[in-house]
Design a protein around this nucleic acid. Sequence first.
DNA 1: TGTATTTTTGTCTGATATTGTCAAGTATAA
DNA 2: TTATACTTGACAATATCAGACAAAAATACA
Lengths: 94, 94
Amino acid sequence: MLFANKIRELRENKQMLQRHVSAALDMDNAMYCKIEKGDRRAKREQIPLIAGILQTDAEELLTLWLADNIMEVLEGEKELAEQTLKVVIEKINR
Amino acid sequence: MLFANKIRELRENKQMLQRHVSAALDMDNAMYCKIEKGDRRAKREQIPLIAGILQTDAEELLTLWLADNIMEVLEGEKELAEQTLKVVIEKINR
DNA sequence: TGTATTTTTGTCTGATATTGTCAAGTATAA
DNA sequence: TTATACTTGACAATATCAGACAAAAATACA
């Protein structure tokens, strides 16, 4: 879980508690805990808020969050992942 | 819709009717119509069945179906798509 | 040790999204 | 027109998921 690992690392480096972040997000702390563990997914619109609270780049966090979502699509399709990504890149660059 | 376009093309080239395919899939024809138009998504386990009916390579169809799913994740994130895919590829090749 | 605090886990519920079905619509050809 | 193929929209059934709460587990520290 790229996104989860990143926000945990950021929070710990800043010596913040989960409840600081969850309060700033107006979110149940249990929920935030699950997001940080990768058990639940943050909503798209929460990413920039989290970035603000943790004082980091929103685009970087969003990129990791998107990458997680793509990894989930490719879950269990290891042998087709590479070819699939080729098709996607080709589609995007056109 | 890569997958949708492909199965339509395959079906038409074989002069098959939608109801032939939907019957073989034990599926409501309206549903198959929507899948072929890209309004609804085929289930993962239906892909090899469809490939069998249309006598084509299941892996190729599956690749297109996965690519559609990834495109949906990247929908509206055009400016981050490239970087995101880089992260995914890096993650996969490790 | 005991106690307070933080983090994690399990479960339930309401909201939201998805899927399957049906009926009615359009399009095309005979 | 009539028949056939395809498409669309509306609705109900179903599945999924965020959010909430309580309680357990882990951690810190007196």
